[in-house]
Amino acid sequence: MQTTIAAAIRAALLECDPHAKVMAARKVARDWRLGRLAFAFDAAMPETPGRPDAPELLPPGKMPRRKGGGERGRIALWHALAHIEFVAIDLALDMAGRFGESMGRQFVSDFLKVAADEAMHFSLIDRHLRTQGSHYGALPAHDGLWSAAHETRGDVGGRLAVVPMVLEARALDVTPAAIERVRTMGDERGARILERILDDEIAHVRFGANHFADHAERLGDEPGELWKSLVFRYFHGSVKPPFNDSARLAAGLSRDLYTALA
């Protein structure tokens, strides 16, 4: 009997070991692309995905301040980026597994592509950390990244509005400065890694924006007004400048949309 897409995604989400999760996410995406998984949703997504014993997860307010320069500052920066990418694997898997039945095959394909990309990003960053004498899990990380998924677990519109269209869109704003920062540190390889990630994140935000627009159309709502209402409901931070307008436009986000909340 053919394995279902829901069962395969659930198994990947429950993996605790980072390397095993990376391999599982990439395998689910590949098996789906090759037609090896049935489009059936017979397995519930876990409320909390598998996590390794390290890093220690702390509330955002309890995180130690990151020092700006020196070796410790560089390692802290890359460790924080690794954690973001690690959680992003689960965010994309959960998106496909939790909402794929109602949203359709293309939705599943797009967000499994995102999961595979995030797995690759995590591997690149963890490998880069190891060249600096560290690794993922060596420092604490904040535990707030999954909260957006948990709060929107019953609302695909809310999930799309907050995760790709706010959180990932914010990465489009801050990554160019991070690229320049690591380049001034003499870390050209790190700069190239971040440039690759930025290109991929534009596509990820575009997936979210496109599926959100389709969702709004099915509901008979105006996409911009629906997005703003869902951000007010589910997002507890602020949408604030500076904005990378060119990257956001390439990702399908008009300036009128997000500046209305700034």
Rank of each mutant, 00 (worst) to 15 (best):
V156E: 11
G35A: 10
P64R: 03
V114N: 08
Q2P: 14
D117Q: 15
D199W: 01
R233N: 06
Y234Q: 08
F41A: 04
L253C: 09
V22F: 04
Q132E: 08
R153H: 09
A29W: 06
I202V: 15
F122R: 05
R30I: 00
A43H: 13
L93H: 04
A191C: 01
E180G: 15
G100M: 01
P64C: 06
T4K: 00
R33V: 00
H204E: 10
M95Y: 04
A96W: 07
H211V: 06
G70N: 10
G104W: 07
G208Y: 02
E180A: 11
P140D: 10
M165I: 12
D200M: 08
A209L: 09
L112K: 00
E85G: 05
V108Y: 09
A149C: 13
H142D: 15
R105L: 12
G50I: 04
F107V: 10
P223Q: 08
L13P: 01
L139P: 02
F39W: 04
G186S: 07
A148S: 14
P60G: 01
D256V: 11
P176M: 06
P60Q: 02
I202L: 02
V162Q: 00
E56P: 01
S238D: 03
W227I: 12
H135A: 13
P241R: 11
V108L: 07
H121M: 01
A177C: 01
E151S: 14
A20R: 15
A8N: 03
S238M: 03
N210I: 02
M165T: 09
I179C: 12
A262H: 10
M103G: 01
I193M: 10
E71Q: 10
G224W: 04
P140T: 11
R36D: 01
